Measured scan of single mutants.
Amino acid sequence: HYVEVNGKKIQATSAEEAEKIAKKFAKIYNATVLDLGNYYKVT
């Protein structure tokens, strides 16, 4: 599981952790979290 933010991949140990990381970055960048199955993308 990982999160992609601005083209950078951030490794996460679980889907739950990946979701938390994605939501945190989405809040910082006022962005949207896309759940793409095996990873989250912040756009």
Rank of each mutant, 00 (worst) to 15 (best):
H1L: 08
H1Q: 05
H1T: 08
H1V: 10
H1K: 13
Y2C: 09
Y2M: 05
Y2D: 00
V3G: 01
V3Y: 03
V3R: 00
E4P: 00
V5R: 00
V5K: 01
V5S: 00
V5I: 14
N6V: 05
N6W: 15
N6K: 08
N6F: 15
G7F: 04
G7R: 03
K8M: 13
K8N: 08
K8P: 00
K9A: 06
K9F: 13
K9L: 13
I10K: 01
Q11P: 14
Q11K: 12
Q11I: 12
Q11F: 15
Q11M: 15
A12Y: 07
A12C: 12
T13V: 12
T13S: 14
S14H: 03
S14N: 10
S14P: 00
S14A: 02
A15I: 13
A15M: 15
E16H: 10
E17L: 07
E17Y: 05
E17N: 08
E19P: 00
E19L: 15
E19R: 14
K20A: 13
K20L: 11
K20G: 07
I21E: 02
I21K: 02
I21Q: 03
I21V: 06
I21S: 01
A22H: 01
A22S: 03
A22D: 01
K23E: 11
K23S: 09
K23T: 09
K24T: 11
K24S: 11
K24Y: 15
K24V: 12
A26E: 08
A26T: 03
A26P: 00
A26Y: 04
A26R: 04
K27L: 15
K27Y: 13
K27R: 09
K27P: 03
I28S: 06
Y29T: 05
Y29A: 05
N30C: 07
A31I: 05
A31T: 10
T32P: 06
T32L: 11
T32E: 11
T32G: 06
V33W: 08
V33T: 03
V33L: 07
V33E: 01
L34A: 07
L34K: 08
L34G: 04
L34P: 02
D35W: 15
D35G: 04
L36A: 05
L36R: 06
G37H: 05
G37L: 05
G37T: 04
N38M: 10
Y39V: 07
Y40C: 07
Y40M: 05
K41S: 09
K41T: 07
V42T: 01
V42K: 02
V42E: 03
T43I: 15
T43F: 12
T43H: 10
